[in-house]
């Protein structure tokens, strides 16, 4: 979707122009954020690799420990497929961190199968192919970009047919799996900087609000997730107080339980 090649010349011209220009109007050093409350746009949910990147900077993580490559269950309920799709894309980012090409390729095919199951397979086929090609070349930057494009295309295709709620479930599935792995890594070698990466109360609110607006998806799993997010809130919405090792462990237990429920049939 993003074609940087086409715009590279303009980019060069722009860089030159910027290097010659001074900045314009100076920004106020402080603003009243309360006045913004009615004008705030929704968050863009961070990709799992955004938090994995920050985690990497805290010290070597053995990503191979967290790679998962099961075929998993097949579902017919679209909300369940959407949650699983988000989880599998997150697994793709983990496999990229581990530089595990065979798993990345399998995940590309799994994503395609799930996207077909939800009726948006056509928009994913070129990305699945690009993931395989990039993994063959061990072009990890390319794989990451294609995984982002895959998630974006899935969600755009869903939004086009007014399935925004399924699109939110894709993001939620990815966030839950990302948080499970984040807490597993921090739990293994605790640091306050690692635990601080869990300080995401506004994202939690965002997901809680989205889940509340889906009463038509009468699934026990969604009710479980809603309740679990309520359990997580007091553990991460701690203001300036550091998030404790006990909280990290508890969040890991909660998210691991949810992840198990997402990937397993019979819930």
């Amino acid at each position: 979707m993003i074609h940087f090649v086409k715009i590279s010349k303009v980019g060069v011209v722009l860089t030159l122009a910027l290097s010659l220009s001074a900045s314009a109007v100076e920004a106020p050093k402080r603003i009243d954020v309360k006045q913004l409350s009615k004008k705030v746009e929704d968050v863009v949910v961070p990709l799992p690799n955004e938090v994995f990147g920050a985690l990497n900077k805290l010290g070597g993580v053995n990503w191979k420990e967290y790679v998962r490559n099961g075929k998993g269950s097949n579902f017919t309920e679209r909300p369940r497929i959407a949650l699983l799709l988000g989880t599998v894309i997150a697994d793709g980012f983990i496999a990229v961190q581990a530089e595990d090409a065979p798993t990345v390729k399998d995940i590309g095919q799994r994503v395609l199968g799930l996207a077909k199951g939800i009726g948006v397979g056509n928009s994913i086929t070129p990305h699945a192919r690009a993931i395989t090609e990039a993994a063959d070349k061990r072009n990890w930057v390319g794989v990451r970009q294609e995984l982002d494009r895959t998630q974006n295309s899935v969600q755009q295709a869903m939004n086009e047919v007014h399935d925004e709620k399924l699109s939110h479930l894709v993001s939620l599935g990815g966030w839950l799996r990302g948080t499970e792995v984040l807490t597993a890594v921090v739990n293994k070698r605790f640091s306050s900087d690692g635990a601080e990466l869990l300080h995401q109360p506004d994202l939690l609110t965002y997901f809680q609000d989205r889940l509340q607006a889906m009463p038509e998806f009468n699934l026990r799993l969604l009710q479980e997730i809603q309740a679990a997010l309520g359990e997580v809130r007091p553990l991460i919405d701690v203001g300036d107080v550091p998030i404790s090792a006990e909280s990290v462990k508890r969040i890991n237990e909660i998210t691991a339980r949810l992840d198990e429920a997402i990937v397993t049939k019979g819930r």
């Binding site: 705030v40 746009e41 968050v43 863009v44 920050a54 805290l58």
Partner: peptide, 13 residues
Amino acid sequence: EKKAVKQQLFKGN
């Protein structure tokens, strides 16, 4: 006119 966007950012990035 202005628009505000709220975004989660991670220390270290």
